[in-house]
Nucleic acid binder design. Sequence first.
DNA 1: AGAGAACCTGACAGATCCCGTCAGGTTTCG
DNA 2: CGAAACCTGACGGGATCTGTCAGGTTCTCT
Lengths: 312, 312
Amino acid sequence: MTPDRCFSLLLALRSRPDTTVAALAEDTGVSERTVMRDLRWLQDAGFPVLARRGRYGGVSMLPGAALDTSRLTPPEREHLALTGLDEDQRRRLGVEAVSDRARRKVAGARSGDGLLAVGDLVVSDNRPWFGRDPGGVSPAALIGDLRRGVRLKVHYERTGRPPQWRTVDPYGLLAKGGRWYLVADEAGTPRLLNLLKIDRWEPLRTARRLRPDVRLADVAAELTSGWETAGDLEVHLRIQAYQVERAQRILGSRLTLGEPEPDGTTPGVLRCRVLEDVRQILAFADSATVTGPPEARDHLKALAQRIVDHYR
Amino acid sequence: MTPDRCFSLLLALRSRPDTTVAALAEDTGVSERTVMRDLRWLQDAGFPVLARRGRYGGVSMLPGAALDTSRLTPPEREHLALTGLDEDQRRRLGVEAVSDRARRKVAGARSGDGLLAVGDLVVSDNRPWFGRDPGGVSPAALIGDLRRGVRLKVHYERTGRPPQWRTVDPYGLLAKGGRWYLVADEAGTPRLLNLLKIDRWEPLRTARRLRPDVRLADVAAELTSGWETAGDLEVHLRIQAYQVERAQRILGSRLTLGEPEPDGTTPGVLRCRVLEDVRQILAFADSATVTGPPEARDHLKALAQRIVDHYR
DNA sequence: AGAGAACCTGACAGATCCCGTCAGGTTTCG
DNA sequence: CGAAACCTGACGGGATCTGTCAGGTTCTCT
């Protein structure tokens, strides 16, 4: 890893909501293996880089990440500042934690700083979310305390009520449908807390207490299993730039928008209670295009065909 | 240069208002030569690092600098992003500027991106200023446009008047007595503009037009030569932490404070019109110590001796 | 269930470049 | 003038970085 490529990668990750190792290799002119090594380095250093394997997988920086190393936790700073120092130098500095590189020299082990890996604290399907800061608490800001594995106090606003402090044991974050949620147990009961409704939080000194043998993915699945059953359908679409503002007005908060793309369209996700709700998109004629799921495309096409037939 | 030492240096520079190459070498565990190479790299990459040669010299980050590479100018980003790319890769990216490293490979030359060096745009005596953000526009924010060598429009508040836009041709920045000034010509007339009184500025597309054979150091000297003659004396002192607030109240805006030090004192600079003004410091007895200039120390001692004699 | 798209890891040889040392230079202040 | 500070080039040795290769795991869609 060279410093210039380090910054280059950070800039690339920050400027795009999602990318792949292949694309980063293309941009930086090195092999994919090298990019993967670099990404590993960034993750070990504490940058909130998330990699997702599998179809539609890729690499991204958690939303809200600033290239500001002052956000790093003390062990992370030590990781940066102290790698390369020998035992004597570290003793003189009075630092007990062994840097990752020193440890690797001895045993080739991963970082032993007691922090949880970002990849273990975020669950999402590989459907792209959008890099633009969705408002509220940012995932990148929260991930620091999640990595420490501590209990949190969260200032949360339930719908229709004033915000209240709630103490939770977090499993991690869930990204779904363009939204971020904190997945946690509250007095042993699993909860999803929308980051939009968290205006601030505090870490407690107590370690988080999780139910035995229960993982983030399990809890997230358990809490979202009813979503499709409740008819919560996410329709993915692309909107021409000149119609975006109108779409926001008409579709309101059910529409979540991504970053404008070079081809002049803006991707978005429309939350529908039933399939029939896609009829609202008809108002945009061909300036909005449904891209998924297939049944939404088919239904929209069928509705349009009925209109055509009606005027024969 | 390794990435971890790169961040380590940035953090060290940011956390201390002033340091030396020797101290940085001690901290990072490498030789002074290596630290100097690293600092050169950081400067070439666009970080607002300033090195001052000579007695009381040292290295510092311009006040207000954030470790945010998005502040870098486009050529600076290219410098980071494109070093290591071969000609074909750069051609595919459509980038004309040759990266520093590619150029070094060919001819060992310095960066040819057309930007002025930070060291050529800042003049100060080596008396330490203080790293704490002094308020107003920050030097680190302004230095980016100064490096491009363009004319500026500055929103400036002259004493007793509402702020007005003024068009200036900048030579650079002056640090003196804990304050930062923009040194510029305004319609051919040299001016010092206190950064505290600039609330915003805009770069213009026009290149700056400077008087032939006139340099930053010349203009700064010309504009400040009357300061001592006008009796503007800067008295350096150290104040015990528990008296700092009282000192601020009594001495007001003539007192400029630095960062508290580990020994429990806070350094400061008191602007006096005449030497006799140091008498105000008597109020602090031994909880404030004058460190310079020598005549200020002598005079304060003499004043104290008179008081002692008076009570015999 | 299988295919394809995506990340992940270890090993190895070769190339690159980084580092420390050394020598000598310039600048600033008391 | 001396000391404290940064600056630069050259060189040899060693560290580490990179690309290649092989094989693995995960996720989604058909």
